[in-house]
């Protein structure tokens, strides 16, 4: 009976504490998830929302890993270890078909919210700037600019240096539609690289590596 009582007390405390666990910084969510998921993943029939953070997933060690892979430190008062991230798992029926994930990025004149639409193989099948405060936001949010990211993945962005802005491989082929908005263009690329690294750490690295199937004997 004593064990039962103790158990009850623990449940009671957890219940009371539950109301206080919701406090935290606001992350980067889709403004209208139902509409946005359907638009970004036309074949989807549903989605599941997962909330996570670097603090929850690995703390300082994970932050150091992310910064090393990004090639840059997290800056300022908003890019911190406890920023919550929202991952949308996309389903067609019961079958998972991909992910949508967004990050905040500091732009020249305001905040930028960059979402990537990923296949299960972590390849970008879409790119969406949800918000941008810039005189040239229209051109950087245009579908023509976003389509340049289709088919790219983290391996491509690993060849992009976020500090110097120098790129090789397929990322180098991404054209800035507005030379005057170079800082926001580079901010969008940094956000994309950070986004892909976070997705790799949060989702893809945690999944078992598929074992290559041996060819059946003739």
């Amino acid at each position: 009976m004593k064990t039962q009582q103790l158990f009850m007390v623990i449940i009671f405390i957890l219940l009371l504490a539950g109301g206080r666990l919701g406090w935290g910084a606001v992350g980067c969510d889709l403004n209208d998830p139902d509409r946005d998921v359907a638009r970004l993943f036309p074949e989807s029939t549903g989605y599941k929302t997962i909330y996570t953070s670097i603090l929850k997933k690995g703390g300082d060690k994970l932050l150091a890993t992310v910064e090393k892979r990004l090639g840059d430190k997290f800056h300022g008062i908003y890019e911190t270890i406890d920023v919550p991230y929202t991952i949308y798992e996309i389903f067609t029926g019961k079958k998972k078909v991909g992910y949508i994930h967004g990050v905040n990025q500091k732009g020249q004149f305001g905040g930028i919210q960059v979402f990537v639409v990923l296949s299960l193989e972590a390849t970008m099948r879409g790119f969406y700037i949800q918000k941008m405060t810039s005189q040239y936001a229209g051109k950087l949010r245009d579908g023509k600019f976003g389509r340049q990211f289709t088919g790219l993945g983290l391996k491509d962005f690993e060849l992009y240096d976020v500090l110097s802005g120098k790129a090789s491989g397929r990322v180098a082929a991404i054209k800035n539609p507005v030379p005057e908005a170079e800082r926001d263009f580079r901010a969008a690329l940094r956000a994309t690289k950070k986004n892909l690294i976070l997705m790799d750490e949060f989702v893809f690295a945690a999944q078992p590596v598929p074992v290559p199937q041996e060819a059946p004997p003739p």
Partner: peptide, 13 residues
């Protein structure tokens, strides 16, 4: 400020 990722000294349009 959080939405716009602004800090003192930054520019806001």
């Amino acid at each position: 400020a959080k939405l716009e990722q602004r800090e003192a000294g930054d520019l806001l349009l």
